[in-house]
Simulated assay, not measured.
Amino acid sequence: MSIFSFLFKGQTLPDEIQIMDRESYKEAISKGKVQLVDVRTKGEFMSGHIKGAKNIDFFQGSAFENAFSTFKKDAPVYIYCQSGNRSQRAAKRLVDLGFTKVYDLRGGYRAWGY
């Protein structure tokens, strides 16, 4: 085990999760109807969001998980938060719920507008 793998062992993501840069993410969600979710709070969502996104607040506990009960688990889910940290945690929770393809926006909504 290298020193880097030791130091960053908690940084690995499940195979079902992929972090995408802004351009790749933008291209992917522009290809028709997708499951696009903003996991920020309602206030953050209301201050601006990606067109077509559904707001499901990660901090709402069981309500967060229940909101995904109508989603297709074998279809891609595109998620984002403000900076990318919260959405990574949300992505891991979605994998635990049985989702097989979760795409997260690198840098979150902050990166979207630049």
Rank of each mutant, 00 (worst) to 15 (best):
N55K: 02
I3P: 05
E65I: 12
A75H: 13
R93D: 04
L7E: 13
I56C: 02
N66F: 03
Q35W: 09
R22I: 14
V34T: 10
E65Y: 02
F71A: 14
M1T: 10
I50W: 01
G48Q: 08
A90C: 08
K9R: 13
A63Y: 05
F71R: 09
F99N: 06
Q11A: 13
M46K: 15
P14T: 09
D57N: 15
S5Y: 04
F45L: 08
S83D: 10
D104Y: 06
W112S: 06
D104N: 15
H49L: 03
K72I: 03
S69Y: 06
R89G: 11
R106Q: 14
R22D: 07
G84T: 10
G107N: 09
T100Y: 03
Y114C: 02
I19V: 15
I56Y: 06
M1I: 08
R106M: 07
P76M: 08
F59M: 12
T12I: 07
H49F: 11
S69E: 15
S83P: 05
K92S: 07
E44Y: 02
G108K: 05
I17K: 11
F45E: 08
S24N: 11
I50V: 14
F71G: 05
K54S: 12
G108F: 04
A111C: 01
G113K: 13
A67M: 05
L7M: 06
G32P: 07
Q11D: 12
S5P: 00
A75P: 00
